[in-house]
Computed example of a mutant assay.
Amino acid sequence: MSSKYLKLSTAAAAVAISSAASAQELTEVTFGTHWVAQAEHGGYYQAVVDGTYEACGLDVTILPGGPQVNNSAQLIAGRIQFYMGGTLGPLSAVNEGVPMLIVAASFQKEPQILMTHPGAISSFDEISTLDQLIIGDEGFVTYFKFFEKANGWDPAKRVPYTFNPAPFIANARAAQQGYVTSEPFAVEQEGGFKPDVWVLADNGYTAYSTTIVGMRDYIEANPEVVKCFVDGSAIGWANFLYGDNAAALAKIKEDNPDMSDDKLAFSIETMKQYGIVDSGDALTMGIGAMTDARMEDFFTKMVDVGVLPADLDYKQAYTLDFANSGASLEVKAALGQ
């Protein structure tokens, strides 16, 4: 796939956007998320409500996920055009002959954490000394394998996570998985204490997260659509994090009436605090950035712990043709960031 689509001049891009907007011939695409609407999806909602996608020719529908929704299957079946994935999932799909393709990484850091009771341990290395590790099935066969080898986590101490914080709250010698933007808030609300947080991404787990994934055939046949969606999403994230996000938050609450204002505020502040979206390569290459070096590093780690086969052509699972255009940098600058 040629990278020429990323090298349009500013003037040409402006003409293209103006033409698309005036003609109102918008291309309809659907983006399936992996969970119910929340602040962690805010950049995409922002790009919908403020017209960023529309400006470059797209009519974007966000299809929320949830416990009974499999948007990954919808992508494979061709019913949606883009899916909110991770890094390991598309790598595993390619290994199974399913040609998924990551085109951008909205989260530079995997937000997955372990929580511990305040003062229970003094360093990440001491997690292995705890009595219980409350971790779900997906985590147990992915990042747990990495930390089992790197930090001595004991599979015998693992118990399944059931999305109920009560067992963790009751056990001061336990650690529980979670998202840095979510579970600490729930524990503080339900348990009355602020847990210590250990971010896996800050301790060697180098997966990208909240990636934009499509099927290879669609991406190769529709590069202008992909470019618009990737750049629009990056701009949306910059505006959501640093600008006026009121309309996006209202749309999130419309799609998920159970979402509260204080939970949304906590998630946004935490994303900023930990650099989940905007850190590392994203600071110079723009939100959504990816590199060959980072992908190789993660692949090598997963091979080393037996999660992926060494002969997998991992480069078939992603492309850098769209991710590093720097679309968000000018927006950030205008917002004083």
Rank of each mutant, 00 (worst) to 15 (best):
M115C: 14
T206H: 04
A238C: 03
L249W: 00
S9H: 08
S106F: 03
Q46I: 02
V180R: 07
S123M: 11
F299W: 09
V277I: 12
N203V: 06
N164P: 01
P223L: 08
S267H: 05
T33A: 15
A207K: 03
Q108T: 03
K272H: 06
Q108R: 05
T87G: 13
L335S: 08
L241W: 02
E224Q: 13
A156G: 00
F168L: 02
K251P: 00
A11D: 09
K194L: 10
Y218T: 03
G43F: 00
N70E: 11
V213Q: 05
I113G: 04
K301T: 01
A172D: 12
K7R: 14
A12Y: 04
K263F: 14
L88N: 13
A14H: 05
E188S: 09
D311A: 11
P309R: 08
S2V: 07
L6Q: 13
R79V: 06
A174F: 07
D321T: 09
Q81S: 10
K194N: 10
G42A: 04
V199S: 07
N245S: 14
A293G: 01
G280N: 02
A13C: 11
A55D: 13
A293T: 03
A172W: 08
L130D: 01
L130F: 11
I121K: 08
G85Y: 15
A247G: 00
M1V: 05
S128G: 12
A289S: 03
P184G: 05
L8G: 04
S325W: 06
A186I: 09
P167D: 01
T291C: 05
N203T: 06
A201E: 07
Y179K: 10
G78I: 07
V15K: 12
I76S: 09
P184M: 06
V180Q: 08
E188G: 03
L308T: 00
T33D: 12
R173M: 12
T270F: 04
M259A: 14
T162V: 00
S92V: 13
N95Y: 05
M115V: 09
S328V: 08
V98W: 02
L320C: 11
M259R: 15
Y45E: 01
T300P: 02
Y314P: 06
S328G: 06
P111E: 15
E296Y: 03
L58Y: 13
I102Q: 15
L130N: 11
A104E: 12
K251C: 00
D154A: 02
D131Q: 15
D131G: 15
T61N: 15
Q74E: 15
M295K: 00
E269I: 00
G32N: 14
G192T: 01
A47C: 11
A172P: 00
N203K: 07
V226R: 07
I212R: 03
I268C: 01
A186M: 09
L75Y: 12
C56E: 04
A186H: 06
G65K: 14
L133N: 04
A221Q: 10
Y218D: 05
H117C: 09
A317M: 11
D281W: 01
Y205Q: 05
G236D: 00
I235T: 08
A37M: 09
D244Y: 03
A186F: 09
T10L: 13
G306R: 01
A170R: 10
